[in-house]
Every structure is written in C-alpha cells, then in structure tokens.
Nucleic acid binder design. Sequence first.
DNA 1: CGCGCTTTGTGAACACGTGCACGAATGCCT
DNA 2: AGGCATTCGTGCACGTGTTCACAAAGCGCG
Lengths: 231, 231
Amino acid sequence: MPVERVRRRIPEATVARLPVYLRLLVEQGDEGVESISSEGLAELAGVNAAKVRKDLSYLGSYGTRGVGYEVAFLVYQVRRELGLTHDWPVVIVGAGNLGQALAGYEGFGERGFPVAGIVDIEPAKVGSVIGGVRVRHIDDLSQIVQSRRVSIGVVATPPAAAQDAADRLVRAGVTSILNFAPVVLAVPRGISVRKVDLAVELQILSYYEQRRVPVGLHAIGSNDSGRGASA
Amino acid sequence: MPVERVRRRIPEATVARLPVYLRLLVEQGDEGVESISSEGLAELAGVNAAKVRKDLSYLGSYGTRGVGYEVAFLVYQVRRELGLTHDWPVVIVGAGNLGQALAGYEGFGERGFPVAGIVDIEPAKVGSVIGGVRVRHIDDLSQIVQSRRVSIGVVATPPAAAQDAADRLVRAGVTSILNFAPVVLAVPRGISVRKVDLAVELQILSYYEQRRVPVGLHAIGSNDSGRGASA
DNA sequence: CGCGCTTTGTGAACACGTGCACGAATGCCT
DNA sequence: AGGCATTCGTGCACGTGTTCACAAAGCGCG
C-alpha cells in the first residue's frame, strides 16, 4: 500500500482537527479499544461524523465499511501525516512566568516536543533549572538551535521583546514560531507563525457573555481550530 | 446616534479579530495617533484592508470617508461591542505550573480580566500567594464565584481533572469556560467553552514543517482566530 | 451462499468567510 | 464654490468549509 506519497494538500481546518483526533485515538488505544467508527470518534471529538470521515479521507481510504477504523493503524497514519514520526525539539525564548510554565509542562515532551532549551536576555534569570532544563542566555540561542537541530521556537517574552525574540529565532535558523506575546510578528516569507493570545480568548468569551440576554438561547459556532463549543 | 441597540449578529471570524484591532488601536492611541485608516490598521494587524472595513462595519458606520477612523471613538465602540465596558473577574481552577503562570500574568488584569481567585484540590497547594492572590481550596469555588460575581472560569488542571473542574465551575454558576486542558469538555447547553491546546498548536506547526520541502514556497493561510500567519 | 445490516467515502448543496472593485461621502486646495 | 484626492461602506464573485444523503463495500448470520 505505501507505494508513493502523493502530497495531496490537506485543508487548514482539517489539519487543525487531526491533532484532536490523534489524542483521542491514542487514548482509546490505551484503553484497549481496537476499532472505532466515525460516529464514535465524532462523539468523542464533539464534531459531526461526516466531518470526521471527510477529514480522515484526506489521509487515504483507511476505514473498513461496515466496521470502522482500526485505531492503531489510524494513529500511525495521522502521526505520519502530521510529521510526528519523530520528535521536534523546541526552544523557548523568555523565562518569565509563562516561559517557565511551558518549560515545565510535561504535555510538550509527552507529545513529541521536548524542550531543547530555554533562554532569556536577563542575566539574572540564567542558570536556574526549570523542568530539568537550565536557563541559558539568549546569546546561546544559535548554538542551541544548531546543535539540537531545533526548527520550532516559542516566543514567551513580554510584548515589547517579542519581535526581537522572533528575529533572533529566525536568524538562528528556526523556521516555525509559536507566539504567545500579544503582538503581530513580522517574519520573512516562508517562516510559519502561529499565535496564541490568552487575553483574546477571554475577550471572545466576553462578547458572548455580554449578549447572553435570552439565557442559553444562542449557540456558539466552533471555529476551525476546534475552539468555541457549547453543549 | 445611540438611539437603539439592534443586536445585529457579528460573524465569529470577525469577533475573533476585534480584540486584535482593539489592542492595536489602544497602542496607537497611547502613541498619540488620533486617526487611522483601514489600510493603516490592516497593516498593523497583518490582514486585508477590505476585511478591516467589513469587520468594523458590523459595529456601525463609524468611519469618515476620505479620512479614516477616529482612534479613541473606535476604541470605545469596539470595547462596547465586546462587552469590555466593565471588568470580567475570572477564577482559575488548578494551581499547577500553568495556573500559576496565568495567575501571575499581568496581561489578564490589564485587559479587563482580574483574577478573582485561584483554587486547587490539593490541600498542599492552598495558602501560597501567586500574583497577589492566595490559592484557596476548590471547595471555596462557589463562594468565590458568587461573592465576586464571576462568570468566566479558567480550567488549568491536568487532563484527568478537567471535566470535574468544569462541572464544579458550572455548578458554581460560571457561564463561560476557557479550557487549557487537552480534553473535550462536556457542558450543559448555554455554557460557552473555548479551548486552548498548546500541543495542538505545535502539531499544526509540525505538519507544515514536515512538508517544507520546496523551501519557502507554500503559504500558510491564517485561520479565523487570527492565528497562522506567514509573511 | 446470498441477504440484510452497518459504516465508509464522496458528490452535491449549502453556509460562511474573503477580497475585489466601485459608488458615495468627505476634506482640502485653489 | 467647485473640483480633486482620499477613504469608507458594500454588492458581488470566488473560495473554503460543513453537512446531507446515498451508493458502494464489507461483515455476519441463517
């Protein structure tokens, strides 16, 4: 079956859901479930069954009609498609509150994103150990990225320092950035950036909270990142 | 002009961008800028100018042709639409790494979401002070929510405890939840939930990183949460 | 061995979001 | 006062994403 890789393009919305399916499938596998239907997976993921089938169909025809999907096999296929067949070490810039929390967050390592290093511009912060990783000075960034072959950087600095952090990451050779600072980063073409803005999430909730006048009447549509759900 | 409030529905995608515009407008205001064009705001936000105009048009016709938008007035209008005319105290469940980082994150309070309380189920964690707030036991949740009139809860627990945390928040009277645990929460109808899954964001980056073969050729479309940008 | 039940995979319709392009409104300059 | 440059507001076409609905495919049972 693995004759060739066609590199069909997968819709952005689907890419954002695949990690969710993957997590649920792994959980099911751990619980001994060997096979699952699109209906079952849809229920777990809180989405429509047709959507699950269409999403999975982008990977290929890996289901069995009348039966469902073999969990272990599907896990393998989703992992392969997402590029999770090997680890992606990440480097964190900024050892403040958030940077420390991220460095100590086990979910990263567990899901294939070990923290290769954490750096800060503040000499006072250098040296302390967080989540088993020693904080180093930002001048060592290139060295870390190069020696550990890091391609993903995380910006966890104050807003004012975020653009500089991104610039340094790019110069060091990183090609993807996850930005937690509430700032629109400017990066060269070809560098992927994703943004997580905690306050923005709260402000969106505020919007719906504010117009919650006829109690519990409106439904909040989920956006394509699997956010926004109401049950 | 403020004759009546029509309560026109604003598209989800627009709601997700308004907080970004708001932040940029406030920044511009602080720098003394009094007026801004859709083109200018679009550049700052990294989006299309037509999109900015259409987004803002949902609030009403607050621009002046040939001139642009008055920054201070627009800030007021966006705030009003997002329900940010008053503070929304939040309560954080889970005083682990992430919960502590969130409690200590000044961006919350600054942007109108003061931390009314942080609770944990672990007695050992109770009592310590984070970001000026004392950690209390989860049994005090209802009391905090009620006395501080909290309607937004933040779930920052380990995955296994997340559903229980959500249940408790709902029982305590919270109507919106921001969930950081990698779990699909089940909540009653009418409760808004938004999810932020850090590992999912990395996995999405991994997908694009993995197929980065013809270097820097593909463009990553932004999703409607203002994430995913490449320049 | 074939019939009926289940569930996939996907075409087609629909809903939603984006971007262009242009009329309409406004300020400025002469 | 009139014309010109600018920028908003929006109709329209396009693209993307979602959902329905059904034929095709496979399993199990009698």
